[in-house]
Design a binder for these strands. Structure first.
Lengths: 158, 158
DNA sequence: ATTGAAACGACTAGAGA
DNA sequence: TCTCTAGTCGTTTCAAT
């Protein structure tokens, strides 16, 4: 895990471009950021090795793939000692319906981003797996109706 | 927006591989899914054109870029008529701190995924922008402590 | 639909500024 | 650090199956 790296304006442009299109070729990228291809590629490698670029991912259209239910679950636990938090975190990794998960502070202890093929599957998961897991106190669910905004994690000044 | 496409086993493998590494070369991809490069590329293009692959994105490490606060906000509105929902959705698109947003059903009307450089910036946003936006009734915030799971949106049987 | 060959273009190491 | 050059490798079209 890197501490704050010292990035120049070109590095920031590279990050912005790759966040917008992770499959852009290096020559296209280099021309957009205003340098030639070799140093551009070296910068990308450096950003990858520093962990600033964590990876690349194709964004998939869940409903087109038969995944009609996307929901968020807020989980409250009975006991929040370190060991219990770790145990629940580990448990989420074993549930394929949970696509990503965060430990949070506030009214809840975890937030789970869930995807399932249909409501029945999702509700069965919530009742039989999630709510009946050890130490789970409350489960609040928000079914998504539609995505309203979807940009990368980091905002870049235009 | 495509309806359910008819995908064969190779298409599913392509989607799984590209979700795991969106920058994989086509020859690497083709060898992993067991066909030669040209048909593999045509399948990828077809999946892109059908909107099943929505795009590609580099995943950035927010804290390494000086974005130390990641939070989720659950928003309840006073009035949930269609026009009001659209108005609020549009408003979220103008807030750079909001990185992605969902319209949801349940106790809240919207869920916002927010990223900011520090707590002060985030709190100022919540108080001065979010909570004081027209029609906003309740704002519940969950500050993230750490990411516990981070896989793509779609689960693939291994 | 797929394969295989071939032309094209991108990637990336090395040299020099 | 960059640019330029050149060789290697990946991409993409096309003919044939």
């Amino acid at each position: 895990m890197p501490l704050k790296a010292d990035l120049d304006a070109i590095d920031w442009k590279i990050l912005r471009e790759l966040q917008g299109d992770g499959r852009m070729t290096n020559v296209e990228l280099s021309s957009r950021v205003g340098i030639s291809a070799p140093p551009c590629l070296r910068r990308v490698r450096r950003l990858e090795e520093a962990g600033i670029i964590r990876g690349y991912r194709a964004l998939l259209n869940a409903p087109a793939l038969g995944m009609d239910v996307v929901a968020f679950c807020l989980i409250g636990l009975h006991h929040q000692a370190d060991a219990e938090l770790k145990t629940f975190a580990e448990r989420t990794r074993g549930w394929p319906i949970v696509r990503d998960a965060w430990m949070v502070s506030g009214e809840s202890d975890f937030l789970l981003h869930c995807v399932a093929s249909d409501l029945g599957t999702f509700q069965t998961f919530v009742i039989e797996q999630l709510a009946s897991a050890p130490n789970v106190d409350t489960v609040r669910t928000a079914l998504t109706i539609r995505r309203v905004k979807d940009e990368g994690l980091v905002a870049f000044p235009t």
